[in-house]
Design a protein around this nucleic acid. Structure first.
Length: 510
RNA sequence: GGUCUGUUCGUCUAGGGGUUAGGACACCAGAUUUUCAUUCUGGUAACACGGGUUCGAUUCCCGUACAGACUACCA
């Protein structure tokens, strides 16, 4: 059994898409499960699409979700460099070898000529408009030109690409760990460009060369790569690496929550959920895309959710820590069909993970929000707030968003409660209640309750009838955490102040 | 258009020749909570279609439909 070495190989063209995070996750899970090695390789062979900051963003995202890299651009390793642009000379020699052995050729066609060829084929109703075995002899390349002409062009510095010479009619077969045997007729594969005119390799060449040199054992990537997998098999064969060829596993795609197609940033924007792990500001447009982290998701919850999009352990257990995922993971249990992205399930996972944390841990999220608002708070108070709030939050920032009233006295009051519950009885009780509280030395939840009961009993008014009025006077809202605990946290002075203020400002409904 | 891949409740999925087709999210109802949330209980809801093979097919095979991916000097 060969040592497991897997790689996550994104290209730094922007923020890391959530589907990419899942691909990285599955690679990571296999690596950890088998005591293997997780490699991060940056595929930056397209200089035109390079986006500054993207590589850093990818690394930070992986770190945030807890995917640790063993070998890669920052960690280094025995096969450095791990950035393809820095490996440029390596690819050249393999391309040359393919040419020397007659498996690749130079092509000098201009973009206009290629365009014309496609149009010509389209006009004749051809089902296949590719640069391939059927068309290559009509083009401007080292197969049609004389050796002298080719040499002349090369020496003159004419721009050229190197294309793979795909065999005529051959069945190419590969075994995909998820899909089984996949067969493709080589006539369907076009003569893919291996080296671009700028001297950089294309994905196909770079990916095969690097996977071989880096001794990659499993290529786990998105299903969008399945159609080009036979081409890669061909490259392994021509390069004489068939025995070392990695095993392939093509992952089902992440689909839009509704409608058809694969999940895109547009869908996320439209439905109001993030699609990137962290906030991302596009350097060109300056547009900010919200991240899962900044939207209040916990990395463990995101990972758990993502792991279950296309994979499941076959048991009824659903909450898995990263360690548990590692233990349970297997490629065989990855599904074949695309998975719709259901943000509601992600929210449920987040809620579960939030609830599982200690109140003390939770308080750090509250402190994060408070720091942004420039509000100070004692640790003790923050923990207490989290205790009463934890059953009702979905996101980390909800402690603040839903618990603002712990720090700011209400300035407006829920209109519905006022119109229904703010009556003479309520006003009478509240006035007496605030007086009683100010007479007591301190205020605990128990005390708040017993004082309220004694006041209502004395006045002969049911407690339930005025509770909503009391809440609205203290929090401004119609619902919230346990009111007695809320008053305890607020403290005697504040409670009295708020009730008095409400009594003085709220007008009785007509 | 061509090639490849896929199709079990609305969603994520389990299952697999004979099952009351299981779970979770969401949804609905009830209970608890003198609010809301939580929690608990219950409920609605699925094998894309047509042919085979078989005593029997949701499960195996073949078609069809639908969906997706790919079809760049992008990855």
């Amino acid at each position: 059994m060969r040592e497991v070495r897997v790689r996550f190989a994104p290209s730094p063209t922007g923020a890391l898409h959530i589907g990419g995070v899942r691909t990285a996750l599955y690679n990571y899970l296999l690596a950890k499960k088998t005591n293997g090695t997780m490699i991060l390789r940056i595929e930056d062979t397209d200089q035109g699409r390079f986006v500054p900051g993207a590589e850093e963003y990818i690394k930070q995202s992986l770190e945030w979700v807890g995917i640790k890299i063993d070998e890669g651009v920052t960690q280094g390793g025995p096969h450095a460099p791990y950035r393809q642009s820095e490996r440029k000379p390596i690819y050249r020699q393999y391309a040359q070898r393919l040419i020397d052995e007659g498996n690749a050729y130079y092509a000098f066609d201009t973009e206009a000529e290629l365009e014309a060829m496609r149009n010509r084929l389209k006009a004749t109703g051809s089902s296949n408009q590719q640069y391939s075995t059927t068309t290559r002899m009509m083009m401007n390349n080292s197969l049609t030109l004389s050796d002298v002409d080719v040499k002349k062009k090369l020496e003159a510095g004419d721009p050229y690409v190197i294309r793979l010479k795909v065999p005529d009619d051959e069945e190419i077969q590969l075994t995909d760990l998820i899909r089984g045997e996949v067969k493709v007729d080589s006539a369907q594969i076009d003569d893919k460009v291996l080296m671009k005119s700028d001297g950089m390799p294309t994905y196909h060449l770079a990916n095969v060369v690097d996977d071989y040199l880096m001794k990659i054992s499993h290529v786990i990537r998105g299903e969008e790569w399945l159609p080009s997998a036979p081409l890669h098999v061909l490259l392994y064969r021509f390069l004489g690496w068939e025995k070392e060829m990695p095993q392939f596993a093509h992952l089902p795609l992440l689909l839009k929550p509704d409608g058809n197609g694969k999940l895109s940033k547009r869908d996320a924007d439209q439905m109001g959920f993030p699609i990137f792990p962290l906030n991302w500001t596009d350097p060109k447009t300056n547009e900010l895309a919200k991240g899962f982290r900044e939207s209040g998701y916990l990395p463990d919850a995101l990972i758990n959710f993502l792991a279950f999009l296309g994979w499941n352990p076959g048991t009824e257990k659903e909450l898995f820590s990263m360690e548990e995922l590692v233990a349970a993971f297997s490629i065989e249990r990855i599904g074949k069909a695309g998975a719709r992205f259901d943000i509601q399930k992600a929210q449920w996972f987040n809620q579960q993970y939030l609830k599982a944390k200690t109140d003390e841990d939770l308080s750090s999220y509250l402190f994060d929000s408070l720091a942004k608002e420039n509000i100070s708070c004692t640790k003790e108070k923050a923990v207490k707030i989290c205790t009463v709030m934890k059953e009702r939050v979905t996101f980390t920032q909800d402690f603040w968003l839903q618990g603002k009233f712990f720090f700011e006295a209400p300035t407006s009051y829920d209109a519905q409660v006022i119109s229904k519950k703010w009556n003479d009885e309520a006003i009478k009780v509240l006035a007496a209640y605030s007086k009683e509280i100010s007479n007591s030395t301190t205020l605990t939840a128990d005390l708040a309750k017993s004082i309220l009961e004694s006041v209502t009993t004395t006045l002969g008014i049911g407690t339930g009838k005025i509770l909503q009025a009391l809440r609205v006077s203290i929090t401004g809202g119609a619902s919230g955490p346990d009111l007695m605990m809320t008053m305890e946290i607020l403290g005697k002075e504040e409670v009295v102040k708020r009730i008095e203020y409400a009594l003085n400002t709220i007008k009785k409904p007509a």
